[in-house]
Design a protein around this nucleic acid. Structure first.
Lengths: 202, 202
DNA sequence: CCTACCGATCGGTAGG
DNA sequence: CCTACCGATCGGTAGG
């Protein structure tokens, strides 16, 4: 196993690996896993056809790394968003906003990939990914539980969470950076919709 | 151009074409368009490698046919579900139930395909698909407008519809036929969630 | 990380 | 709709 020793070569290797990951994530999102070739990814970072295999054992290994990296980054920004916000409604707002950011920005549109290329992963690969995913959902669950205690939420069960995440995840399918509404406005409307539904205000 | 003349051979040709469509739809959903090979589809209906090209010009043509067929079928069941239900709330319930059925059952899980393989279609192909999609959304819009007139809905704008469809479409990602809740129960909970949100009952 | 390559597979076609 | 095939491409490897 390689250890970081601060050498120039080590740092460059890490950079190249990270570049490959970024390029792969973007291409998987844009074209899908199966339609993306290793050559596409290599070309995107100025490498030749076979070179990515110096950094990743196989195409599937690269996919796993994209998912893990993406989920870990997402978990980090989600945790950051809620940390320190003890007011449940404020925490919920921050959560929705952070989740939309994650889902929409290039950065982690790996969610469709994660869902659609699930079976492309090996057994162990799945276990590692699931572990991070569980922690992600736990953050949501905590906030929803708090909301319910405050009487702002009728149900904090799994189905409620799934409906909520569905409405939010779907934003990735229609959001356009140059659209009418920016992400903050969408997040605000989403919070209203999720808590109050589309029933008229009283 | 071939004309239907009621001959046995003609009827069989139509059947084979329909079989190919069904097999393709299922495989596209399960494995994705790019990962599905013409050979997979051929094998699924007991044909040899090149034979599907007797029925469809190209793989992309087959994809277009799957989308059109799927959307048309979906539009039909949606229209059927709301027809005759003048009570807006009843119409909404029927709509949610029908949409979930469409999204979840094997039949038309082409929605992810439609969204993800969008760019795989030619310019004209997209236009034809968009036309059907617009009619589908129009049915939704009509019911939502009625609901709003009755005061059961705060907003009937595009964003509301997108959040709703998101929550419902996402069900395809987690629904399992052998799960705890059947589709009717999920539909009921969805109606509550969409109209009332997750705010507590008063 | 490149060069050079391989075996496998894939979409599609000709000709019946 | 089958047989037989082709050109292109793809994931991956050896050897440096």
């Amino acid at each position: 196993m390689k250890m970081a020793r601060g050498g120039g070569a080590e740092r460059d290797e890490g950079n190249r690996r990270a570049e490959l990951l970024r390029a792969a994530a973007r291409l998987f999102r844009e074209k899908g896993y199966a339609a993306t070739t290793i050559r596409d990814i290599a070309a995107a970072v100025g490498m030749r056809a076979g070179s990515p295999f110096y950094h990743f054992k196989s195409k599937q290994d690269l996919l796993k790394a994209v998912m893990e990296e993406g989920l870990a980054t997402a978990l980090e920004s989600l945790s950051l968003a809620v940390s320190g916000r003890h007011e449940p409604l404020q925490a919920f707002r921050a959560l929705v906003r952070a989740h939309l950011q994650i889902v929409v920005e290039q950065r982690v549109d790996f969610i469709p990939v994660l869902l659609h290329e699930w079976r492309a992963l090996s057994e162990e690969g799945r276990a590692e990914v699931v572990a991070i995913k569980d922690r992600y959902e736990a953050v949501w669950q905590d906030v929803l539980t708090d909301l319910k205690r405050q009487g702002l939420l009728g149900g904090d069960d799994k189905l409620t969470r799934l409906f909520m995440l569905g409405a939010l995840n779907w934003v990735a399918q229609w959001y356009r950076p140059d659209g009418e509404l920016d992400l903050d406005e969408i997040a605000g409307r989403a919070v209203d919709f999720l808590l109050r539904g589309s029933a008229p205000r009283r």
